[in-house]
Nucleic acid binder design. Structure first.
Lengths: 242, 242
DNA sequence: TAGCATAACATGTTTAAACAAGTTAAGCGG
DNA sequence: CCGCTTAACTTGTTTAAACATGTTATGCTA
């Protein structure tokens, strides 16, 4: 249920592009045409199109038109500039998923943890280790740190489902912004054990470190996601600005 | 030289935030205040602020204000949702850089290459292998494929400098859009040799595969960048939308 | 004083209009 | 037929105004 006009137009155009209504490299109908189609103002239409641009679906060319450059992605891949939970990502790709909680504990941030996570010293933290399965294959080992005051009432049972559903649905928290850093790190014994990896085969893995902020500007989550290297795939679209 | 008002406002606000004019988590001046400061319309100001949002510099909160959440990045890291050449990235981080061309040849795309790169079968291609040094350390081994008709006149000498400068400056091509896919792959003998890696140490590396489009909607570049795992670092900001 | 309505102020959405700038094809003149 | 101007069409930028919605502090009432 889109709450705004530009979003419903955006979704409809996106759907039409994905449905192959426009050939690859074909020009979309002009702004004026689309304005009549959707019976909206030029600004509203342009706002929808600009989201398609940042999604990498189309490319605008001044004086020429808007070109469809959408090409469907073949494999499982993680979000493109969006915050997606593991569950959302799996659903989008039509795969079965399961989350196993390996560890659930509470702790207080000391100097070392604070330096690593950015949480204030003395802050009370939920620390979780979670293993994510896709089609019954263990792919990701997550180390989650949640600020207790923001995620109050979190339990192991909730963590086996979707933590984000709990935070957004039950606690009514808005999740806004996330900074993610991708690196390659050596495999640890824990990784080896739970992700069923063989050091002879791969001795390192993809690590995504993320800092997530809520609507009040509080960094409430620090997460380190350790991915099986042979299944890791991260996609993004870059737009050259200046 | 910013060519538009909103861009100059965006740059100034960005500069002010980076210069620590606003404390971390502090609210920026309200829209009305900034409109008076920059003597512009509300739309223009909001357009500038929305770019700061997508850069992860600020966070807007309806009814409350715009919060500064900028935190300077500690280490060398590659672009955040932008297309940056190796040289631009090095300059931004104030490091010395050098590019060595290992191989420069022309070839015609056959079925196999076409499937891998997306170039049309029979298309004439420049194929380059380039080694990038940062502070005299070999960090990245690039396999570049350029569509000859778009990069006409490319030479080994140009490739030792900035290919993008040549394409944008001399050939007046506009570079618009890039799709990037990050994966982790096994190290090859070539990687081992040129990046001075030891398989005992790391047996895999970060690989960024990118497809780049020009202003005419033509995919003119396919590049596979193979990064030393211990120096690879990729950062992005994700914004939750729906 | 506690609680509630409300005014003041914040950002979010939408429309309308005008002008700027790049592209293309029509049409005219040689 | 070629080459130029130009008109028509494209997207890009900017302003102004109105209304919607969320937040906060003021001030009144019980």
């Amino acid at each position: 249920m889109p709450k705004s006009i530009y979003e419903s137009i955006y979704r409809d155009l996106k759907r039409r592009i994905e449905a192959d209504e426009f050939a690859y490299r074909e020009l979309l109908p002009s702004e004026n045409t689309l304005i009549q189609t959707y019976n909206c103002s030029r600004n509203t239409l342009r706002r929808a199109v600009s989201r398609l641009v940042s999604d990498g679906y189309v490319q605008t060319m001044q004086g020429k038109g808007v070109r469809n450059i959408y090409q469907p992605v073949e494999q499982t891949s993680f979000a493109i500039g969006e915050i997606e939970s593991f569950r959302e990502s799996a659903l989008r790709n039509g795969q079965s998923y399961r989350t196993q909680v390996l560890l659930f504990m509470e702790l207080t941030a000391d100097e070392a943890l604070s330096a690593k996570t950015g949480f204030p010293v003395g802050g009370e933290i939920y620390y979780l280790q979670r293993l994510h399965f896709l089609d019954e294959k263990p792919l990701i080992l997550n180390h989650n740190y949640f600020l207790k005051e923001c995620a109050r009432g979190l339990t192991k049972e909730i963590a086996e489902g979707s933590i984000y559903d709990y935070l957004e649905g039950t606690l009514r928290m808005s999740i806004v912004n996330s900074r993610r850093i991708m690196t390659v790190e050596k495999i640890t014994e824990i990784d080896e054990k739970y992700l069923e990896l063989n050091v002879e085969d791969y001795n390192c893995m993809a690590v995504v470190t993320s800092y997530t902020y809520n609507g009040d500007g509080v960094m409430f989550e620090f997460t380190q996601s350790r991915h099986r290297p042979d299944y890791f795939r991260f996609q993004e679209v870059a737009v050259r600005k200046g």
